[in-house]
Write a protein that binds this DNA or RNA. Sequence first.
DNA 1: AACCTCCGGTCTCTTTTCGGGACCAGAGGC
DNA 2: GCCTCTGGTCCCGAAAAGAGACCGGAGGTT
Lengths: 148, 148
Amino acid sequence: MRYEELADLPCSITRPLVLLGDRWTLLVLKEAFAGVRRFNAFRSHLGIPRSRLQDRLTRLVEHGVLARRPAEDGEHPEYRLTRKGHDLYPVLMAIRDWGDSHMAPDGPPVHYRHTGCDGEAHVKLECDACGTRLSAHDVTPQAGPGLR
Amino acid sequence: MRYEELADLPCSITRPLVLLGDRWTLLVLKEAFAGVRRFNAFRSHLGIPRSRLQDRLTRLVEHGVLARRPAEDGEHPEYRLTRKGHDLYPVLMAIRDWGDSHMAPDGPPVHYRHTGCDGEAHVKLECDACGTRLSAHDVTPQAGPGLR
DNA sequence: AACCTCCGGTCTCTTTTCGGGACCAGAGGC
DNA sequence: GCCTCTGGTCCCGAAAAGAGACCGGAGGTT
């Protein structure tokens, strides 16, 4: 129970990571953003063991990231992103930007294009007051209300 | 060796995750961005077992995310972010934005402020051509040069 | 020198988690 | 009635994580 206790720390990086920080969870979510909804579809795309997939899906449902619906037409359940899950898209896109920059010697395997536009989607860190583009050097941490 | 093979897939989300997707790696990097450089400092801040920390640091050095220097003044080695490591900041900030939104009922534990400005740093997904703010619905994947 | 401490790092043992396959039940299809 | 597909559970051997003992080099003290 040592590691799970990290989720109680007042840190908005640590807390999500206790949920998301493992081999499969973010990969499952990546598939979900690609439109995958069915149990066996996740399984065949990722090669994840069934029991592991079951664990991860259940946990994501418990945390409100996915919703399990008994399916609308057929009988087979669907796992769909909730609003909360949908909000994770920038995380995956930030990872992808990094992957394209540093782990894609032949260029990006996939372009993520603004639909109906020539541009590509990229993640940017900005100051919400002055709009300046920021890097780690420009940011200063400061105590907030959620600090116990 | 099944799981590691995912790193060979032509996907810029999957490839980084094989390196970053585990309990500790992103937490170690979070500490690195907070200025931590020494072995025992990582250890005491995170409560990570020493052998685990050793593994992770070594792996990050091998991947060029951290650099191990014999230290400039004293004798003790330092682990510092490389350029490649520095580029991971948006990933951590994207996670933090999500944590603040969905896992911080009492408000953000920490504000990440634009130094010398009142604004806060936030991650945004934008079209690099037209500048529009994008969500997952506005993005279409398209084959790129890195696709085998 | 002898002793003590601090530090990064290794080794080893136990517990937890993961991987992979067997097994199961419900829903159709034929 | 039988075969198949699907989501889901169970179980066991393998891999990874946790925890603590141990080690060696560098300083500091006396």
